[in-house]
């Protein structure tokens, strides 16, 4: 048994950490969202004005919906890429499994910024892709929508978050006892039937975890829209960033952050419930 003094001492660092870097910032953000900026000065005057602004000015809702649409597209696309990849690795890659696994993971070691810039050089009007299209006379003018568009943001985010989606799905698939698949075939199920009746249901917790990663991380992303989004690809985090920066409206920025936080927490709560509902091990 450990003494009370020992327990108290070892719990101080984590408590300090959580207090200083999590609770305090959230409390400050929460407080700011009810304050106001007047004549360039922050006034500690409690009111709901920021939230009223968010509700009445359609620009914010518009950007928020665009952000959610982009996050949803990224989630869907990275599931469509990550699931088959995880399935192939888990069930069919055999000897190449280790190598392929490493190849999926390696991009995670490369800086996000570098990968974002790489896409800029690929998608730009003088970029690799346009050069390629013109060289083969597919197009004569540079294709403009490739860069500085929601499309570019979705593309970059999908590229960046697919490994995050792949990992939990792969883990879930690896955990399925292979004898269940044999049992399914034994009972007369074809490979497709076995997939839909056994493999897919048993991989749902991993699928949900991966989808949550992709959606939540995309929702709060501001680098991809900054690098490749342009005006039409602006996301909510960019709005927050500018409100905290050039616009100097911390209260409104905090109010938006609170809204995003609520959406995220609600989503995490929901997926946690769903994951529990679908876990049987």
């Amino acid at each position: 048994m450990y003494s009370r003094a020992y327990k108290a001492i070892v719990s101080i660092p984590p408590l300090l950490w959580v207090g200083l870097f999590l609770l305090l910032p959230y409390a400050l953000m929460f407080a700011h969202s009810f304050w106001v900026v007047r004549n360039g000065f922050l006034v500690h005057e409690w009111n709901l004005g920021n939230f009223k602004t968010l509700a009445s000015n359609p620009v914010y809702a518009q950007v928020l919906f665009r952000t959610m649409r982009i996050a949803a597209s990224v989630t869907l696309l990275s599931l469509l890429l990550g699931y088959p990849l995880a399935y192939y690795l888990s069930f069919h890659a055999q000897a190449r499994k280790e190598l392929l696994y490493q190849l999926v993971i390696v991009p995670l070691w490369v800086s996000y910024l570098v990968r974002g810039y790489a896409w800029k050089t690929i998608l730009g009007s003088e970029g690799v892709l346009n050069g390629f299209l013109r060289y083969f006379h597919v197009t004569h003018e540079p294709v403009a929508f490739l860069l500085y568009s929601p499309f570019a943001v979705v593309l970059v985010l999908t590229h960046i978050y697919t490994p995050f989606v792949f990992l939990p799905i792969y883990a879930a698939l690896e955990h399925i006892p292979r004898q269940l698949i044999e049992a399914s075939h034994d009972l007369g199920a074809s490979s497709a039937q076995t997939f839909f009746r056994v493999i897919l249901p048993l991989s749902i917790p991993g699928l949900l975890a991966g989808a949550t990663f992709a959606f939540v991380l995309s929702l709060g992303d501001f680098l991809a829209p900054l690098l490749v989004g342009g005006a039409s690809g602006t996301m909510i985090a960019n709005v927050v960033q500018s409100l905290f920066g050039a616009a100097y409206d911390w209260p409104l920025g905090s109010a938006i952050s609170i809204c995003i936080l609520l959406i995220t927490v609600g989503l995490l709560f929901l997926t946690e419930r769903l994951e529990k509902r679908w876990s049987f091990q």
Binding site: Q179, V198, F280
Partner: peptide, 28 residues
């Protein structure tokens, strides 16, 4: 295997964990 009129009882049962007893039996 799925075209053979042969069925197997596995050593560790290999019941489908996400299905009820009745659904396990109805699977085939």
């Amino acid at each position: 295997p799925y075209q053979r009129r042969v069925n197997t009882v596995f050593q560790h049962y290999a019941l489908f964990p996400h299905l009820s007893v009745a659904d396990n039996v109805a699977y085939g």
